[in-house]
């Protein structure tokens, strides 16, 4: 009995030692020599593997980052300036600071403002619906509300509001990785400067139709009247194809355009509530 036990223990131990030696030799033979800094850079990165930097995952970014001669074009939107500074330190360079960005949904066509004229009956995918038609409302540009942006967000930072049926970005969670921007087949989502204390102003519409049809399809559409561009003291607003666009680098957040917009298509976010002064003004200010 005991002899069987001893034999078994012996055989297994010898087998173990032999295999360990084999493993060691193989590992030595096929060892891949890598720049050790890649691991260091990767350790600094957030590890979300979101692809927001344009590389396949954090490892891919780290490899490219270590190899790159010029790192000014490379940026990890999730980690932001701090992460970039740390990563640059690892390879002995300095990173330029960039303004933090946030995803902005440029459509305010809730059912209240934009009547549904058709009923979609298919798989819940904006991409699929886009192949079928331009949308279930009179607006051919607006949000379809089927949530492709929600599906691709790795940070749980975007959800469809059950009442407005529009995506809402949670700016605390949003890392500006840009996945939703790429996923939206209507090109409604844009990465914009987050602004001081989150204050920002943008045109929440991408309808390029003329004023009449645009307004008919959606009450809060930009009708391309150009009043905002005229009133803007900083030359930040351009109107092209019946649609106004605010350049966030020029905008000084004076809010004159918001007051001027006849349809309330311009949004101001994170501003303190303003005093009521002008009578008959449309209630455009939506403070989140």
């Amino acid at each position: 009995m005991s002899s069987i036990l001893i034999t078994a223990i012996l055989v297994l131990s010898i087998l173990g030692v032999l295999l360990a030696v084999v493993l060691y030799l193989v590992a030595q033979k096929f060892k891949v020599i890598e720049d050790p800094r890649i691991d260091l850079v990767e350790a600094v990165l957030p590890g979300a593997n979101c692809g927001g930097c344009g590389y396949p995952g954090c490892r891919g970014f780290a490899e490219a980052f270590v190899k790159a001669d010029d790192i000014t074009t490379m940026f990890c939107p999730v980690g932001g300036n701090d992460t970039m500074a740390n990563a640059a330190q690892v390879i002995g360079k300095t990173a330029e600071a960039k303004d933090p960005l946030v995803a902005v949904v440029r459509c305010s066509g809730s059912p209240e403002h934009r009547k549904r004229v058709l009923e979609y009956d298919g798989a819940a995918s904006c991409k699929l619906a886009t192949a079928l038609y331009s949308g279930d409302t009179g607006c051919h540009y607006g949000c379809l509300g089927l949530g492709d942006c929600v599906a691709v967000c790795k940070f749980d930072a975007i959800y469809i509001d059950p009442i407005t049926l529009l995506p809402v970005v949670d700016e605390e969670k949003c890392t500006a990785c840009g996945a939703c921007v790429k996923a939206c087949p209507k090109f409604i989502i844009e990465l914009r400067k987050k602004g001081p204390k989150g204050k920002r102003i943008y045109v929440s519409c991408i309808n390029k139709d003329k004023g009449g049809p645009a307004r008919k399809a959606c009450q809060v559409a930009c009708i391309g009247c150009g009043k905002c561009a005229k009133v803007c003291p900083h030359d930040a607003i351009t109107v092209e194809n019946n649609l106004a666009y605010i350049d966030y680098n020029k905008c000084k957040l004076c809010r004159k355009c918001v007051e001027e917009c006849p349809t309330g298509a311009i949004m101001e976010i994170n501003f303190p509530p303003r005093k009521q002064k002008v009578e008959g003004q449309t209630e455009s200010a939506e403070t989140v």
């Binding site: 298919g122 798989a123 995918s125 991409k127 699929l128 192949a131």
Partner: peptide
Amino acid sequence: LPLLDYIRLGKA
């Protein structure tokens, strides 16, 4: 199941 819907999506 919307088989073809998703296959279309996949094709694209």
